[in-house]
C-alpha cells in the first residue's frame, strides 16, 4: 500500500500540489484523474521520486520514501515498475533486450534464466513473436505492452502508469487497461494510473482520486461516479455529450 500524507509541491511561486492525502491499496488499480495541468503528473513524479515534494510523507508500506537514504531509495526502486506515456523503450535494443534490461542490471540469474523470464513476460502481454524487433518497428499499442512486460520483469510490488492509453485507439486502450488490471490482481501489486481516459475510469477504476488545481477534489470508485455530487468532478467527467447521455440514462434506471 502507498499512502500520501499532506503532500505539497511548488515550482517557484506556483503551488502545484496542495495538501494531498491519499491511500492506494494493494491488488487494486488506483486512478489519479484530472484535467491537463491539474498536477497529476507532478503527483505521480513525486510519488516515484523524480521530483521532491517540499512537505509531506510518501509511505511505501509504512516506509517513508522522502526520509530514505540514497541506497534505501535505490533498493526500493527495484520494487517499482513504471509505464511511461511514451513507453520510453530503449531505441537501440530489441524488444527482448528491453524486457531483459532490468534483469541484466539487477538479477543474479544466469543468461538463460534471464532470457526465459523476459520471454515469459513477453508471452504474458502476447508479444513473444515480436521479441527480435526494435521499438521503432512495432505499433504504439505494442510498445505499451512491451513497457508493461519490462515493468513486471522484476516482479515489482508497485506499478505506476503515466497515461498508458495516450495516443492509442479505444480498442487498444481497452486491451492495455485489461492487461494492467489483470496483472495488478494476479501479482497483488499496488498500481497507480494517471489518466484522463473515461473508458479507464469506468472500466478499471477500483479507486479514483480527482485532482483539481493541485488539490484532491473527490475520491471514490467507478460505481460512485454517476452519483457524485461534486460539481467540478462532474464537469470534468461529463464534459462530452455522450457521457451526459449515459448519465441521464443511468439516472432514469
Amino acid at each position: 500500500m502507498i499512502e500520501l500524507k499532506s503532500l505539497y509541491k511548488s515550482f517557484e511561486d506556483k503551488d502545484v500540489l496542495i495538501d494531498i492525502n491519499a491511500q492506494f491499496e494493494n491488488g487494486k488499480t488506483n486512478l489519479i484523474i484530472g484535467q491537463s495541468g491539474s498536477g497529476k503528473t507532478v503527483l505521480m513524479k513525486s510519488i516515484v521520486g523524480l521530483l521532491t515534494p517540499e512537505k509531506g510523507k510518501i509511505l511505501y508500506d509504512g516506509r517513508n520514501f522522502l526520509s530514505m537514504s540514497k541506497n534505501e531509495k535505490k533498493t526500493l526502486r527495484r520494487e517499482m515498475g513504471m509505464i511511461f506515456q511514451s513507453a520510453a523503450l530503449f531505441d537501440s535494443q530489441t524488444v527482448l533486450e528491453n524486457v531483459m534490461f532490468p534483469l541484466d542490471m539487477f538479477s543474479n540469474d544466469t543468461y538463460r534464466e534471464r532470457v526465459r523470464r523476459a520471454q515469459f513476460c513477453l508471452d504474458r502481454v502476447n508479444l513473444i513473436d515480436a521479441q527480435d524487433k526494435y521499438p521503432g518497428e512495432i505499433s504504439g499499442g505494442m510498445q505499451k505492452r512491451v513497457a508493461i512486460a519490462r515493468a513486471i520483469a522484476l516482479n515489482p510490488q508497485y506499478l505506476f502508469c503515466d497515461e498508458p492509453n495516450s495516443g492509442l485507439d479505444p480498442k487498444t486502450s481497452l486491451v492495455i487497461d485489461a492487461l494492467i488490471h489483470d496483472i495488478t490482481t494476479e501479482y497483488n501489486m499496488t498500481t497507480i494510473i494517471n489518466t484522463h481516459d473515461m473508458n479507464s475510469v469506468m472500466g478499471i477504476g477500483d479507486s479514483i482520486i480527482f485532482i483539481y488545481q493541485g488539490q484532491k477534489e473527490w475520491e471514490g470508485d467507478k460505481t460512485q461516479v454517476f452519483t457524485a455530487t461534486n460539481q467540478r468532478f462532474n464537469d470534468f467527467i461529463f464534459a462530452s455529450d455522450l457521457l451526459k447521455k449515459v448519465r441521464e440514462e443511468e439516472t432514469h434506471k
Partner: peptide, 15 residues
C-alpha cells in the same frame, strides 16, 4: 533524445 522521450527517467525509476 533519450531525455525528452523519458528513457533516462525510465532508467532512474529502475534504480
Amino acid at each position: 533524445t533519450m531525455r525528452v522521450t523519458q528513457q533516462i527517467d525510465a532508467l532512474e525509476i529502475m534504480g
